[in-house]
Amino acid sequence: MKPESAVVSITVNGTPHRLEADTRRTLVDLLREDLGLTGTKIGCGQGTCGACTVHVDGVRVLACLLLAVTVEGGQVLTIEGLGTPDGGLHELQQAFIDRDALQCGFCTPGQIMSGLGCIGEGRANTAEEIRESMSGNLCRCAAYPGIVAAIADVAEGQGA
């Protein structure tokens, strides 16, 4: 093995993987290129749009700003890991459909993963709080009102 590569052990959506990777490989490229999980999108590659949001060890992070080698041993959850084993949707995915919280759909997986984090962190109590907590996820179609409504629907349902 070349010094510029490393073995990365990582669990993605419950499945453990052990891969040799270029040390330069980012988590988002590892997910997409090595594991074929292309639901996580690359919008900017520099932490400014949120399209690559996934969860690592239970918190929402930007997969474009993490080198895969630094996530060694991590538990990763991506958009493909949501929903039920029989193909059913996660309730936040369903809420996005119900609220038509998208247009082009490119930022949508990141919005959903971030929205889950927002709810999990207890920052979905008011529309204003959701908006601030979700501001790391840009939507150029500006489907923002629907996204906020979808997150609020799920947060309310869980709080009830």
Partner: peptide
Amino acid sequence: MTGARTPPEGRLPRVDARDKVTGAAEY
């Protein structure tokens, strides 16, 4: 902020929304 879980305006929900919310839509 509450709302019925019915398709918006009583019409079809966005037909490619499922692919987009699951990450299955291929760009």
